[in-house]
């Protein structure tokens, strides 16, 4: 466990990192840059997980998001590349309305969070985090677990079919 002041420091650092790189993802005009900042955001979020004593989740975050999904995104960018890459990630005509909406949602959300009373519980997190998660998955949540497996299989088959394209002759 980190000491309180250290964790506070780390939290602010990570927060700034996450928010800044997320803004970069959204605001930059080059889609490749956006993808790279996306990876940075994911890594920052993994740090937040560690801060919250969710080490296993942090590992999954790095593996799945930073490893697999970001790479997928980069692949997709490469395969659909057309025209000038430095102008590949532009805003559409809704950008102003969307900005107002998102700002309003953020302000409202923050107000509501401040108004809400949470019953904070103090307690020791389980020492063996991975073991606890494994118990949950193969015990109480075994059915959703299996369904998730089926979902992944279906998504994989669907993605292959869609990406390959149906042969028009058949």
């Amino acid at each position: 466990m980190l000491s309180t002041s250290t964790s506070t420091l780390v939290f602010w650092f990570l927060t700034i990192l996450i928010v800044a790189s997320a803004l970069a993802v959204v605001l930059l005009r080059n889609i490749v840059h956006s993808a790279l900042f996306l990876i940075l955001t994911f890594v920052g979020i993994a740090g937040i997980y560690i801060l919250l004593n969710a080490e296993f989740l942090a590992a999954v975050q790095i593996l799945v998001y930073a490893g697999a999904i970001a790479i997928l995104v980069v692949f997709a960018v490469m395969l659909t590349r057309r025209g000038d890459i430095s102008e590949s990630n532009l805003f559409n005509k809704n950008y102003l309305a969307a900005g107002v909406l998102c700002l309003a949602l953020f302000i409202l959300n923050t107000f509501l969070i401040g108004q809400t009373f949470w019953t904070i519980k103090s307690g020791e997190p389980p020492l063996n985090n991975v073991g606890a998660i494994a118990d949950a998955f193969l015990g109480r949540y075994v059915l959703p677990f299996e369904v998730a497996a089926v979902l992944l299989l279906v998504a994989m088959v669907g993605a292959i079919l869609l990406a390959r394209g149906v042969n028009q002759d058949q």
């Binding site: 559409n92 809704n94 309305a97 969307a98 909406l101 309003a104 949602l105 409202l108």
Partner: peptide, 12 residues
Amino acid sequence: QTYALVIFSAVV
């Protein structure tokens, strides 16, 4: 995206 905009406006 327009639809999504309307949906989230409604949420707000």
